Simulated scan of single mutants.
Amino acid sequence: MTIENTLRQADNEVIVEGLLQEVRLETRNTTDGRGFIGGEIDIEVSEGSVHTLRVFSMKEKKDGSENGIYKGLLTVKEEYVSIAKVGRDEADKVRITAGQLGVNDYVGGDGQVKTHPQLSTNFINRVQANDTFEPKAEFEVEMVIQSVAEEMDREGEETGRVKLKGFVPQYGGGIAPLEFVAEGEGAEYIRDTYEKGQTVKIYGDIVNKVEITKIEEAVGFGKPKEKIKRNFVREYLITGGSEPYEEENVNTYDVKAIGKALTEREVYLEGLIKKAEEKAKNGNKPAKKEEKKGFGSKPKKEEKTIDISDDDLPF
């Protein structure tokens, strides 16, 4: 996605440090034979708090030279050890200092576009034995404010926290709609100071955890029945932020340019729906019959490929 006057990529940094919980990476080929690596890694920051990050890299750069990012991710796939493989005591301690906040857009089974927040990175490093190990998950990002509103609970009551929605310009002119929350002094400042259309920089904690509550149900006789309730919490909690950028500031985003980017995003999302519809139609075509082989012969195993164009690549 690009617009005529490409938006400046926002400052966007994610830091995650913790134990490598699981690696789910695959090396595959596009239909025209280009190799790439992609998938997800999970990092445990604390018990019950795990963060998933997407990774992707082509095997070669556009000029045909070796891609160092691919090589690094291949090392993670083949050499890094995770909790899932060897247990918590032996798992690698890893650090990510160049992650980013973004969104994952896809078409659901109902034919509608779903958008969820997503963390991504292409640089994963082991924490060396002589380094200080500080498990954490933090963000710092510039954004254009869309709205400031009170957070409401399921009963429709105000929680005292504030929801800050905004747009984060991405590489290449794309734009990611994201939502943040603030509480206490931060919520008060945002209510009084932040307004729609302003450019600000905020930072805070990435929260992804499971809250477990045990409830004992009364019974007529015998031991009380214990019921476990799990509440999944995933949010970007603001712990600090800048004053709104001045209009004269060269880093202040032009609201009209943001509007153009949003229009182009809508076109992109419509394209996702059309692709999904075409794929569904093609999927209904009868499958080709498998060619019969003679005695003792085995069908040739097909190499994993995927139909992917330059427009689909996440960079």
Rank of each mutant, 00 (worst) to 15 (best):
T252I: 04
Y236V: 00
A187S: 12
V255P: 00
P244A: 09
T263F: 06
I206H: 01
M152A: 05
K279M: 05
G222W: 03
T193H: 08
T193M: 09
L237A: 14
E216T: 07
N284D: 10
R161Q: 11
L237P: 00
K165Y: 00
T193F: 06
A257R: 11
G197A: 04
P177V: 08
E179L: 10
E290G: 12
F167G: 01
V210I: 12
K275P: 02
E211V: 10
K223N: 10
I238M: 13
G204T: 07
V250A: 11
E157C: 00
I258K: 02
I202T: 09
K281E: 15
I175H: 03
E248I: 12
G241N: 13
V168K: 02
P169L: 01
K227E: 15
L269Q: 15
G240L: 07
K281V: 03
K288Y: 07
A182Q: 10
E183P: 00
K293V: 14
K229V: 15
P244L: 13
K281D: 13
I202H: 07
V162L: 01
I273R: 14
T239G: 06
F232N: 15
Y194T: 07
K225S: 11
Y236S: 10
V210G: 01
T193L: 02
E291H: 06
E235V: 03
Q198D: 09
E290H: 05
Q170C: 01
F167Q: 07
E157R: 15
E158D: 08
I202R: 12
A276R: 06
N249M: 11
E183M: 05
V219Q: 14
Y189L: 14
E188Y: 04
N231T: 14
F167H: 14
G222Q: 00
E216D: 13
V219P: 04
P169G: 05
T213E: 15
L269M: 10
G186H: 03
G296S: 07
E291N: 09
V207E: 03
Y236D: 05
R265M: 08
N251R: 10
A276F: 06
K214V: 12
V168F: 01
A149H: 03
A261R: 03
E246S: 12
A187F: 08
R234L: 01
Y189W: 09
V219W: 02
K256H: 03
V219S: 07
M152F: 08
V233Y: 01
K275I: 08
E211C: 01
G166H: 03
G296D: 13
E243K: 09
E179G: 13
K201N: 09
V200A: 09
T239Y: 11
F221L: 08
G186M: 06
E155V: 06
V255L: 06
N284F: 07
K281S: 09
V181H: 09
K201L: 12
G160N: 08
N208Q: 06
A182L: 11
K223P: 01
K223R: 10
Q170S: 02
R191E: 13
I175Y: 02
I273A: 07
R230Q: 15
